[in-house]
């Protein structure tokens, strides 16, 4: 038996973070904080990885410092657990609770991580538990469109106690203004919208062919067109062959 030597990648000396300079908020983050400080409901639509989380973190810090409570809802249960650990590290274990249906930890804490379903249940069954709560953050608000789970988001938005401000963080969606005017309508409160279109790091889209070549979009479309043509030709060819055999 021969021992096959494995392939190794070219290794660039990347891996070092470029110096980022002093920490500064992006303009859309600053604007979001301003709107929240003024006590508005707020929807933020921005691509993944642009720093929506930071807006949530700063709001949480503010609310906790003011001695009030805040709820953070996450789209999936596994994520709630992760968020709980994150927040416990950031804000101290005693400030954070977790309630997901199968887990309930420190449920009187000022910062509660919940699944959206649990928040919805509280809005119906024990809204008095939310008396001290100033904000609810809906992370990944576009889950409203989820066939199975969207209902929990919607019922939460409709029935969250009136004194609670709604903060929705969403990936880029084209009708974010429609969503905000719906929330404004159903909650009878003004809702501000902040849209950030730019990615922190822009994306380049490429396609890889069977030969391992990399194409941009026009190149890929042309490549596919040719493959399809060839295939058609081959099919027609084999057809003729069989005709000759007969």
């Amino acid at each position: 038996m021969t021992i096959k030597v494995k392939r190794r990648p070219r290794r660039k000396d990347a891996g070092q973070a470029a110096p980022q300079g002093p920490f500064r908020l992006d303009p859309f983050q600053e604007e979001a904080i301003r709107e929240l400080t003024e006590g508005h409901n707020l929807l933020v639509a921005a691509p993944t990885g642009t720093g929506k989380t930071l807006i949530a973190d700063m709001l949480i810090e503010k609310v906790l410092a003011g001695g009030r409570s805040i709820v953070y809802t996450s789209p999936i249960k596994a994520l709630s657990n992760q968020k709980y650990r994150d927040f416990a590290q950031k804000f101290g274990k005693e400030s954070v609770g977790l309630i997901t249906g199968d887990v309930s930890v420190n449920d009187r804490a000022p910062l509660l991580v919940m699944t959206t379903e649990i928040f919805r249940n509280w809005c119906f069954a024990n809204p008095e538990m939310l008396d001290q709560t100033t904000h609810v953050i809906f992370d990944e608000l576009h889950f409203l469109d989820d066939l199975e789970r969207g209902t929990a988001w919607e019922e939460s938005i409709i029935f969250a106690p009136a004194h609670i401000r709604v903060v929705g963080l969403s990936a880029t969606v084209p009708n974010i203004r429609e969503l905000s005017s719906w929330i404004a309508d159903v909650r009878n409160q003004e809702v501000k919208v902040i849209i950030e279109k730019r990615r922190a790091v822009p994306l380049d889209l490429y396609w890889i062919s069977a030969q391992g070549e990399t194409y941009n979009e026009p190149g890929a479309r042309e490549y596919i067109r040719q493959r399809m043509e060839m295939r058609k030709g081959r099919w027609a060819g084999s057809h003729n062959d069989s005709a000759e055999l007969v």
Binding site: Q20, P202, D204, Y206, A220
Partner: peptide, 19 residues
């Protein structure tokens, strides 16, 4: 796709679709 591109590391995020 948006997971491509690490802030401070990559000038662009590369997204590849296999044909």
């Amino acid at each position: 796709a948006g997971r491509a591109g690490r802030r401070g590391f990559d000038p662009v995020g590369m997204v590849y679709s296999r044909i």
